[in-house]
Structure formats: structure tokens, C-alpha cells
Design a protein around this nucleic acid. Structure first.
Lengths: 369, 369
DNA sequence: CTGAAAGCGCTTACAG
DNA sequence: CTGAAAGCGCTTACAG
């Protein structure tokens, strides 16, 4: 076997990375000193300026980078957070994932993204698989942002990885979570529509039976009451009886399926039957589909009916008209999630125990309302 | 300091993970045997059934999982691939990133996603930062899918990580890459429009001066010739002189900015002046904006003008009308990228040297053309 | 078939 | 201020 082949077989790297020993030798000091200089310990950081200079120069010359695995083995943190999501490209969570990563990087950590669905090759129990793999890799903490209608043993996760935070309330004792304030989101939407003179404001919710559905309804009632809007049950649309109660993920196309035609039921109920002049949609996808079907039926947006979305997904810029939408501020949520995890990991404070952090939403005005 | 606090400070984990030593002790064998049973070496896998059973039972009982860092330190692969993208949530690449990860997971590896822009907290040279960090963590290979108009020293990357593959041709000697076949993409679009009876097919390109722009043009000409369509220079729109020559990323909003109004220049040039009855748009975002502006100008899609997008982004399902679009098959590209990396990492074959793999696109018909 | 032993690269008391 | 040494958890020749 040739030398070249040997090194290749050793892991694909054609040249050995320089180690602390190499640096120490070049600098003419012991590994101990080199290590202290380069990684500034907790106080026993004693060495001469002379030694320090020599070491740093050697390190620079060799392009030395500390081996992460060795540090971790020695008891250091992995500086890695696991992030569980239904699918990496989940349109509902792109900004969250993105910002969790940004927040992690800004404190010198990394993110290990894990799809729990959407990978038929690996089989159905990918939630457990990833939880397991996270343990092997010794992540410092885990964000679980898997939708509640997707499978996965959250309890086992929390047991294996005590430093776990959920995005959305998993409804478990002792589980810390960060949640978007949906009641406030709907309040903002209703307030906006009302301030534009709308009086008959409809609310379209995917599933009223879920806690999040109830929250939305509560926000609606609160704001309607505050504004003195008349209460009319017909202005509340529940998607569940219409087969809109949950999202279906097609693992073939890797997309969430969405029966656009069913949006006509929303229009029938809210606009035609209840005479709504505004609709607060379940999310931007509902809103986009609603606007399309409305146009087909000769209903003008926003002239006849104002539409407010939820998510402020980048889709919102591309609908016609561009969509006024409530931003759940996933960027703030991402930051908070990492902050909690970091506290748990650094030991400054125990991982937040069963605390729920609510993230305040914000309305982004475009042209649909 | 209490015991609980001590363990917390040790890294956030309240209980030590069981090690091979624990398993061996419980099974009543040596670590060597336990190791051989649990990790089946390359042939010296000799042990009695009795020993194997005992070890496996012990491992199961203790929920033993091999420590990744230790294995890696001992010379095993990290089973991790670094993925460089401009931004994790980059709408142009969501499916690619997603499928790279899926492909990696299906061979027991993981993906380390790295944003090169979009994280102002870390500073401007994040490309280098991540390249460095990848070295520390000993990734088995790197996918670089950073847009060519974004900064980053590709040459240094390739030197530090010889097992690197690019998505899109970086134009460097010896760099392997996977590229979507843009000429074929435009051919498919033109063919589709022509087969629907369109004769004056316009082509809107972001920047004709770029190689990819030239490829698109070549595809256009090839198909137009094959169909006997008359050549008319006015049917080619180059965005560059109109300030559409590159995408701008707003790190505040973490979105790509897009001057929707400028799409009117496209309509002016292609539809009004050149009388196009079909437009092959630069991508789905252009297409979505075009359709919106056309509607405003009383131009019906597809009745008056057919529109074909490029990307088959999930946006395509939500435009009005839903967008017929060319899918660059990023899922196939993702698989190919990982395949190449895996070959390089496993040493079966040297990392593909300077080879370019072209991925065949596919047309997805919806209603705009 | 089995186990004692070396060593991956680092960190960190510990003794000089 | 400095260096020899132990040890993190694993893998793997090597000698029994």
C-alpha cells in the first residue's frame, strides 16, 4: 500500500493536522505550557511572555487548531446543540432554525440539525435515532421544535438530555419551553383590522380543539370585547370538521400537503354566510390560498375583505397582494432557546425548569389588510 | 459545592454516560472483548457467543452508546460533513440543504450547517471561521454551496479540506462540483411553451455576463433552433443593466431583497416591446413578481402570456396562478454531493478530481404555462 | 477466544 | 514559571 493510499484510508485527509505536541516542539517548550498559552485555563494560566510568544508564533506557523474530539474527551463541552425539527426545510420553521444557529454560532457553538420525518431511508423512528445520536455526540443541549402532531418520545428525550428546551409547549411537567404568544398574535390582527374600519372580523383556525386554537380564540375574544365588536359565533371557522385539522407531510415530495380547494369552505362560512369584511387566517399558507380563491370568486382583497396571515413567512412578500401578517418573532425565540440551553450547559444556572417563555409577536403591514 | 452542582458544572449532564468499561464489568469480560462485540472490527472479530450475549445484554441494560469523541480521537471518521451555505434558510437552497442532510443521515452521517453570511454577531469572515471550525471538528468532507457572488476563500477551503465538493462550478482547477443543467432547464421551458403553441418566447436572465447566464442563453437558442422559432434579440432580457444583476441579502431582515418594481422593466421589454407570449423567468421569485405586475397591467397569465419559473420552490404552489416551473432537482444534487464526499471519505476512491456532474432538470407543470 | 497495554490529542492537578 | 504524568473512552495490534 502506497503512502498516499494509507493516509487516504486513514480518513480522507491527505496530511496530518498539527497537534499541540508539534507546536510545543517547534516553540521549544513542553506541551503543558503550549496548552496553557493556547487555551487559557481557569487561572493556573502562568507562563512567561517569552514562552507565550514562541508558542503563539509556532501555532500560527503550523496553522494549529485544537482537536475538538480530544478536548471533548477530556471533559470539555462539545459546544454543540442538537435541534430536532420535523424537517430541516420545514417552511413553518425556517427562520427559527436559522436563528437558533446564528445564536449558537455567536457564542462559539454549533447546531446539529435533525429531521425527524422526511427521510424514508432511515425508517420511522428517527426521533429516537437522533436523540440517541445526540447522546453519542455529547451535545450540550437540545432544542425540540417538532410539531406536536408528529411522533416522538418527548419524555425519553428529556430524560436522556435534561438540558432540553421545547419550541411550543409539549404539555409535560418540568419541560421548559418557548412559545409564540398566539393570543396576542390574534389580538394584533384583530386590532389592525378594526383600526382599518372592519367590524365583522372572521377568525380561521386549523383546529379549535387544540390548546393553541383556544389561545387564538381567547385573543380574538379579548380584542373584540375591548373594541366593542359584536360577538357572532359564525365568524369563527374551525378547520377540524372540514378535514383541515392537521398538516400532512408528503415524504415523497418532502412538502406539506395542502388542500387548496378546502379554502372555499372558509370563504363560504366566513365571507358568504357570516358577511366577514376581514379574515384572520390560520397562517400565511391559508391566507395565500384564501386570497387566490377569493379572487376567483370576485372578492377583492383588501377592498372587500382584508386578510391577515400568521408567520410572516417569506411567502408573504410574494402573494398578490403582498400579505399583511403577524410575525411570531422566531428570531427572538431562537435567541431565547439558545440562551436557556447555554445557561443549562455552562452551569451558571440549572436548565430552566418547566418555565414557559412567551414571545411577543409583531404585525408586519403589507397590502392585504 | 453540592454533588448535584458539581455534575452540572461538569457539563450540564446530571448523570455520567455509561462507558465501555461499565459494560465490560457488568458483562464480566475485558474491555477488549466488549469493544469487539459492540463495534465489530475489520476481521479480528473473534469472541465466543457466550461473551457476545453477555456484552450485548449489559450494553442494552445500561443503554450504552459509544462515545463519539473517543472513537474519533482513536482515528475513526467523524461521520460529519460540513455544509457551507450563504444562509441556512436561503430560499434558493432549502431543498438542497434538506436533501444533503437526508442523504448523509441515510449513511449514518450528520451534517454541520454553516451560514457564511447573515450572522452579524460573528463578523464578516464567517466563511473562514467555518472552514476553520470544520477542521477542528474533523469533518469527513465539505459541501460548499455558497453563491458565487458571496465572499469566501474557496482555494483555502479546498486546501484545508481536500474532500470538498461544490454546488455550482467555482471555476477552480481540480474542484469537483455538481451543477444543475441550466441549458437543459431553459430548453425544457422553451419546449413546453412552444408545445403549447407559443411562438414568441421571452427569456429573462439575471445577468447574461455570468457563465450561468450564457448557459441559459445557449439552451434557449438550441431549443429555439430545434423548433424553428425565429430569432429575435429583443426576446432576451438581461437584468444586469437594470440593476438586477445580483441578489442583495439584508442581514437585518435575513431576507434577500428584491426590487419588485423592476420587474416592470422585464414586462416592458419582453411583453410590450417584443410582443412575447411566453416568458421563461430567471427563477420563481422573478416569476411570482412578474405575474403580479402583469395582472396589474391587465395582462392575463397564462392566457396572454405564459410564465415558467425556475427552482420549483414551494412558492410555486402559492402564486396565483400556481407556477409551472423547472425543478433543478436539488434532491438529486444533494444525493450526488454526499455520494462524492462519502467516496472521498471512505477511501474507496479519491475525491472526484475536478469532475463536473450535471444534474438533469425536470419541468413541473402547474397553471401558469 | 481473551485480556493487558499502548496511544489518539488534549487538559490539568501536581511537584519542582 | 515549567514540565512530567495521569487520564478522558475508545480501538486494536499483540501475546497468551
Amino acid at each position: 500500500m502506497s503512502d498516499a493510499k494509507k493516509t487516504l484510508a486513514r480518513g480522507g485527509a491527505p496530511h496530518r493536522h498539527p497537534t499541540l505536541t508539534d507546536v510545543a516542539r517547534l516553540a521549544g517548550v513542553s506541551r503543558s505550557v503550549a496548552g496553557r498559552v493556547l487555551n487559557g485555563g481557569t487561572g493556573n494560566t502562568r507562563f512567561s511572555d517569552q514562552a507565550a510568544d514562541a508558542v503563539r508564533e509556532a501555532a500560527a506557523r503550523l496553522q494549529y487548531r485544537p482537536n475538538h474530539a480530544a478536548r471533548q474527551l477530556r471533559g470539555k463541552r462539545s459546544r454543540t446543540f442538537g435541534v430536532l425539527v420535523a424537517s430541516v426545510g420545514d417552511p413553518l420553521l425556517t427562520f427559527l432554525v436559522q436563528h437558533i444557529d446564528a445564536a449558537a454560532v455567536s457564542i462559539g457553538c454549533r447546531t446539529l440539525l435533525a429531521n425527524t420525518i422526511g427521510n424514508p431511508d432511515v425508517g420511522p423512528d428517527q426521533f429516537d435515532y437522533h436523540v440517541d445520536d445526540f447522546a453519542r455526540r455529547g451535545v450540550d443541549g437540545v432544542v425540540c421544535a417538532v410539531h406536536d402532531w408528529c411522533e416522538g418520545d418527548r419524555r425519553a428525550l428529556l430524560q436522556r438530555h435534561p438540558n432540553t428546551v421545547f419550541y411550543e409547549d409539549p404539555g409535560m411537567e418540568g419541560a421548559a419551553c418557548v412559545v409564540p404568544d398566539r393570543a396576542e398574535a390574534v389580538r394584533l390582527a384583530v386590532r389592525h383590522a378594526a383600526s382599518r374600519g372592519r367590524r365583522r372580523i372572521g377568525l380561521a383556525v386549523m383546529a379549535l380543539s387544540r390548546p393553541t386554537g383556544q389561545e387564538r380564540l381567547a385573543g380574538y375574544r379579548a380584542e373584540a370585547d375591548a373594541r366593542g365588536l359584536p360577538w357572532d359565533e359564525r365568524l369563527i371557522f374551525d378547520g377540524e370538521p372540514h378535514g383541515l385539522g392537521y398538516a400532512r407531510h408528503n415524504s415523497q415530495t418532502r412538502q406539506w400537503e395542502f388542500p387548496v380547494e378546502l379554502m372555499d369552505r372558509v370563504i363560504d362560512a366566513l365571507v358568504r354566510d357570516a358577511g366577514a369584511d376581514a379574515v384572520v387566517a390560520h397562517n400565511d399558507f391559508w391566507a395565500a390560498a384564501l386570497m387566490r380563491r377569493m379572487r376567483r370568486r370576485g372578492i377583492r382583497v383588501p377592498d372587500d375583505v382584508a386578510v391577515v396571515g400568521y408567520l410572516n413567512h417569506y411567502l408573504a412578500d410574494w402573494t398578490d397582494p403582498p400579505l399583511t401578517s403577524i410575525d411570531p418573532m422566531q428570531t427572538v425565540a431562537g435567541q431565547k432557546l439558545v440562551e436557556i440551553l447555554e445557561q443549562g450547559a455552562s452551569g451558571d444556572a440549572p436548565a430552566a425548569d418547566g418555565v414557559t417563555f412567551r414571545v411577543a409577536p409583531r404585525l408586519i403591514e403589507r397590502q392585504s389588510a
